[in-house]
Amino acid sequence: MIQVELTLRLLTQHQVEFVIVGGVAISAHGSSYLTYDLDVAYARTRDNLKRLAAALAPYHPRPRDFPAALPFVWDEQTIKQGTNFTLTTDLGNLDLLGEVTGLGDYEGVRGQSVIMNLFNMPCRVLSLDALIVAKRAAGRPKDLLVLPELEALREIAEENK
């Protein structure tokens, strides 16, 4: 389970550039889908990697699939050498995505995001259209399960414009 508010506040206070994607984004748009982690796309500029490394370091991020005995260093260099990370942290499970299947890199993701006020913070959240594209592109059974509801949400949103 992820502490969503604390994590978003942490990233915001450190001026990390990010876009909420995945289950929390789906929920923010009105889906009744339940998720237990937070997925964010992040900018891979040098400065943002530094800010991201600094923001999460006190919370001991570590890849969820790493053996407990395997050393792991969380820093700018580590983030630079990877792209997507599935992490466990003291705040819960957090996935960092340098690229989102179907949408591309951060600039592509950011260009299809909207700003929502979450926990009294302006947060970038992937748009409904982009969530649908990403879920279709990912194509796993769990991704396809949420598509009917997302498409209904999009249809009524279009009619209400």
Partner: peptide, 17 residues
């Protein structure tokens, strides 16, 4: 879904949390 749509995005994410 309708219940969720009656909430603001902030309320939805707080409810999820």
């Amino acid at each position: 879904t309708l219940q969720r749509l009656r909430l603001t995005p902030d309320e939805r994410v707080r409810q999820l949390q």
